[in-house]
């Protein structure tokens, strides 16, 4: 295999030079300070991984990654930023659909590892078509949508509009959510960040480990940037919608995530595109381990 191609964008050339040096032995490296140039490169050439800064004078990184998604859907997108404001991180999920959200200053080894992982995934997805209209098989069971929220209104909204097409489950506590997950995998999870007293971060992370095809939408009034960044990297949430969320916005996003679920299910090669980073928080790691264990026992009992 020839060297994978890496595209670096930052308004600080010293960052570009430094990163190029990190990658030049293993990659074909392009670098630019100009977002338009970056898009041009993406159109002209098969680029495995794009790494972009967020705050740049001409364009925000999340916006650039959104354009990159259109120009070259198979390219894996990574944001590398020294500025973590909430708007930027929300945009990086919703527009940029980033594979990783990395912070400056970065750990050289970690960045190398992430880029290598992303390059391998990109290589595999070049082989398959990303957007194919797969007719939803009417015979197959209805997609399951799990809503984890204390507040019933989200579940109600979803029920009103999608109940004919999906099985909709509303769980207002972690126990209920676990029982439902034990019964059968879910297609899309719509979740707040807390459920009663429980911080659901570890549940979302576990769901994604359990079934990488499941798409996660977070709908919350919480706005903690560092937690969001964790969820991007470790749960690969694909949408972050701040509450209160309008019915249209919720339904539209839910529909597009249902489509995404079908696409991934029909082309399992794509599921690696949402591979998660290991859980970093030691307590969450334990919680996730327990959750998986209990889930396993529940499934075994149900199967028996």
């Amino acid at each position: 295999m020839s060297k994978p191609t890496l595209l670096l964008i930052d308004d600080e050339e010293r960052i570009l030079r430094s990163l190029r040096m990190l990658f030049f032995s293993g990659y074909k490296v392009h670098m630019t300070t100009d977002p338009q140039e970056a898009i041009r490169i993406l159109r002209d050439e098969r680029v495995h991984v794009i790494v972009s800064d967020q705050r740049m004078p001409l364009m925000q990184g999340s916006e650039l990654l959104g354009l990159a998604r259109e120009a070259s859907p198979a390219t894996m997108r990574i944001l590398l930023t020294g500025y973590s404001d909430l708007d930027a991180s929300i945009a990086s999920v919703n527009e940029g659909e980033v594979f990783r959200y990395l912070m400056k200053p970065w750990d050289a080894e970690e960045v190398k590892k992430v880029v290598a992982e992303a390059a391998a995934i990109a290589e595999a997805s070049f082989a398959v078509q990303l957007h194919v209209d797969v007719p939803v098989d009417a015979a197959s069971s209805k997609p399951r949508v799990l809503i984890m929220d204390n507040d019933e209104s989200t579940a109600k909204t979803v029920h009103e509009t999608l109940s004919d097409r999906c099985e909709i489950i509303w769980a207002s506590d972690a126990q209920h959510a676990m029982e439902e997950l034990a019964k059968q995998d879910v297609s899309v999870v719509v979740s707040d960040l807390t459920l009663g007293e429980t911080n659901v971060g570890y549940i979302l992370k576990t769901i994604k480990q359990l079934n990488p095809q499941t798409q996660c939408i977070v709908v919350t009034s919480f706005n903690d940037t560092s937690r969001l960044i964790e969820l991007i990297n470790q749960a690969q949430i694909t949408r972050f919608l701040p509450k209160p969320v309008s019915k249209n916005l919720l339904v539209r996003n839910l529909e597009s995530m249902l489509e995404r679920f079908h696409a991934v299910r029909n082309q399992p090669a794509l599921q690696n595109r949402q591979a998660v980073a290991p859980i970093s928080d030691p307590q969450e790691k334990i919680q996730a381990g327990n959750f998986l264990g209990m889930l396993g026992r529940l499934r075994a009992r149900m199967g028996a």
Partner: peptide
């Protein structure tokens, strides 16, 4: 502080990386 953190993180980013290289 958030703004200055960004300003510092950028040079810190490449300095740290350069030292690692």
């Amino acid at each position: 502080v958030a703004g200055i953190a960004h300003e510092i993180n950028t040079p810190l980013g490449y300095v740290q990386n350069n030292v690692a290289i």
